[in-house]
Nucleic acid binder design. Sequence first.
DNA 1: CACCTTTTCCC
DNA 2: CGGGAAAAGGT
Length: 887
Amino acid sequence: MAMRSMLTSSGIMDNEADPSYFPFNDLTLMGSTGGLSPYSGSQGNMSITSPMSTSSSPMHITDNYINLTNASVQVLGEPYINILVHPMDKFRFRYKSEMVGTHGSLLGASNGRRRNKNNVPTVQLHNFLDKAIIRCTLVTTDDEHTPHAHRLVKRMGTTDIDDPHDIEVSSANDFTAEFHSMGIIHTARKNIKDEIVRKLRAEVLEERKRSNFNATLSLRDDAQIKADAERYQKIINLNTVTLCFQAFIKDQHNVMRSITTPVYSNPINNLKSALTGELKICRIDKYTSSCEGGEEVFILVEKVSKKNIKIKFFELNDDDIEVWTDYGRFSELDVHHQYAMVFRTPPYKDLYITSPREVFIQLERPSDSDCSEPIKFTYKPSDRMIGRKRTRVSHSNSEELAQMAFNLDTPLMNTPLMNVPSNNDSTEISKEIKKMLEDKCSSSEFKEFVDHINLDLYENLLAQSEENKLTYDGAPSKKDNEMFAKNVIIDTIKRIKANPDKSKDIIVNMLKDRTTYGDSPLHYALRYGQKDVIKRILMLMSFVRTKSEELVNIQNSSGKTPLHYAVSQEHAEITNALLILGADPNISDHYGQMPLHRAVKFPEAKASIDVLLAEEKINIETNTDLGWTPLQLAAEAGSYYAVCSLIKAGADVNNTDMSYGRTALHIAVEGGHKDIVELLLKNTKIDVNKRNFSGNTALHTAVVTPGMKAKEICALLLKYGADPYIRNFNREPSNIEGDQVQNIKTEIHSDDENMKESIGQSSFDLASNKPDILQLVSNQNDTSLGAIKCKEENIDDTQKVWMDAVQEKQLADILDETKGWKKLARHLNFENLFNNFEESSSSSTLLLLNYIAIQTNISLSDLQNILQSIGEESAAVYIGQILSVLS
DNA sequence: CACCTTTTCCC
DNA sequence: CGGGAAAAGGT
């Protein structure tokens, strides 16, 4: 729309007070139809060549002003009109039947600075001294600016007066015309032609009167008008109009003569239409996401067009300046019937945030860059990031000293735990834990551990760490600071020392302590990656083996057990230890996530996954509350290793997610995880053509997935038998182009042969605007079995461009000679059908070609490509010739 | 008949 | 008024 207004003279004149500017050069380029000449060359080309369009041609106007305002022009220059206030860009067009009572009138655009009470479309005439008339009419928004079929009416008392609306200007009103209380009447479709005829008649009559004030319309004029009206009604866009302003003076016969070129307002769009209507997010199923993004969000929206809509995420700083922008991830298949969409959140710019960040989401329509009102959205710190961030920040002296404090005691505990663990280190830990658990923590060892811990040094550190204490989610409390778990251990040991007889009770009670988020000490140590503390807790637990099961399965306030946190970290031995202590791998958190669901998302959790999967009782097909199995989540996260492990463990690859019926294959395709796609196709019995709830196969998804890998993934799918002819359940006419002046009614696209006869979109349809993928889909398919079975539905499609008999014969000769027809048959998997052709009469190729022509969807260029690929050079060249003749 | 769009109606 | 929705029309 922006571009459009640049093209009109009004766009240029707007707010320009430069009187030396004359739009005449533009006018010559733009054609002279303006709002006034109905005849604009029957081809719809530049109308200056039309003999009939003279009313506002540059020549004509020049004549006018020389005759009429000669003197003043010498001094002032050409008269011109300048738009002071444009009309509002959105307005409800009302049907005639709705025009009872009063409805809002067309106001001026809410111009930033001038906040006028009576803000209405306003224009001013310049370089003219006498009184004149400024006329306002309704015209189309396209370059021709022909009279619009809708009516621009002005309410006078109880009656509506049609355009043109004339306002007299003079020095008395500063040559300014304000157009008040106008409305736009939406002409019913059946009346459109009549309305256009009526307007054209009035115009042409006026035009005729300029040369002869007694003139009437000739038969020829009438015929021409009817023809034009016929043409206009086909291309008219009923949802956008433009105001046309032009200045006139009346001659001695009361005939209007123009003194300026017409100028055009910005377009006015119908507020009730889908194409130009208001963008709005009506409802959203959740307004938060982890800062990592990738979370599915459902929104209900006012009518959108799936090919012309984006979901923008942005953040403003304190000065309302946009500091971050990204877009929701979705394909056109995720837009449901123009009223709802499902997308994935983009990752936030900072994955290490420790407090929530407020951002905004809004709908954005690329065609006119219009946007909905933004709504708030919150990015939350990532669960998995907590530990890391902490670890990094807390690499302070006190941390290391704290380590030493612990390291002074038993020889078992002397590894530098907070360092990045080397292999040695981790086997060391593993051994320790194993030993610890196997020995069931012999009481002597336990006693030694309790006796030798260096509490004094540790307590000093406590005070010290107060200063650089880290806050968690902005709400530090005694139980929520980083020392929580350590404090519990210290307290426990102190109490045991004081009361050795009750050590088991003390341990059980102390390890049940919780933070305000419901974390037990073990949760806490795990979440903060305090490995040394973890070990100590495990040790304490192993000492109370009978109660350990209860302790190790404590759920925090989001329902997570320590195992949930253990599995996302790389120390599988901790996971193992928890399981030995009786952790139940099947406990779900409040989102229905079991530890396995969580683990599959973390690249560093590979070993833990295998440990989990080794558990006999683990259930690997459980759905989360969102209806996803671990395998599907792994596919979503792109965790190749996890997918592998799950498949080995017997996960059902054809299981589908409950919310959309996707298999892991759909999901991997959606995420662009080519490695996983290949793994699934190659090594499992996954159904490549399984359809989700919308009827989409993985190939449908692949075709509409943005990004470089999409093509390769399509190729893979096709290679493994994906059928591009399968249609989804989409029933919409998918041809609403995002382009500005498109009117649905005028769409007579017939280049989409597949489209018309049956319902739903095939992968071809979806690929129609992606040439490379389309080609891939077409070529590949013809080589696959899929090609045969789909033919039935296309048999009635006889429009197929094919060779004529002579050409067919020639091609057959070529292929008969080289025996290339055999290769072709084999390539198309038609071998069985043609096995005994050789014996049969005439040309085998001819039969084959006939079969291809009638029974398949293979086009000439497809055939050319196939021949090329099987090395039938000369045959391919021959088809190339046919094709070039055809085009 | 099912499903859209357009037009009319109503609060 | 602005918004919603039923009725009428079209495929």
